[in-house]
């Protein structure tokens, strides 16, 4: 099982909470006021940070999916 980060940029409102929670996974485009997903398949060491970034998005633009490779 590996975790996949699903990001819907059209829902993003530019809070940047994801970047604060998990700078290893996210970046931020200040020109367009949008989060940028850098790592769609973070390894297991980053799993809890990926989860935090999903639940701390007030715009509910992020969710995680478990996938078997």
């Amino acid at each position: 099982m590996s975790v996949h980060v699903i990001f819907e940029p059209t829902k993003c409102q530019g809070y940047a909470n994801c970047l604060i929670e998990a700078p290893e996974i996210w970046d931020f485009d200040e020109e367009n006021n949008r989060a940028v997903l850098r790592l769609t398949e973070p390894d297991d060491a980053l799993r809890s940070k990926a989860e935090a970034s999903a639940r701390c998005c007030p715009a509910q633009a992020i969710r995680l999916e478990e996938r078997t490779p």
């Binding site: 940047a16 970047l19 604060i20 700078p23 970046d27 931020f28 200040e30």
Partner: peptide, 12 residues
């Protein structure tokens, strides 16, 4: 203010 990357660094 308008510096989200710096904030991520400072939180750590």
């Amino acid at each position: 203010v308008n510096a989200p990357r710096q904030l991520a660094t400072l939180r750590r």
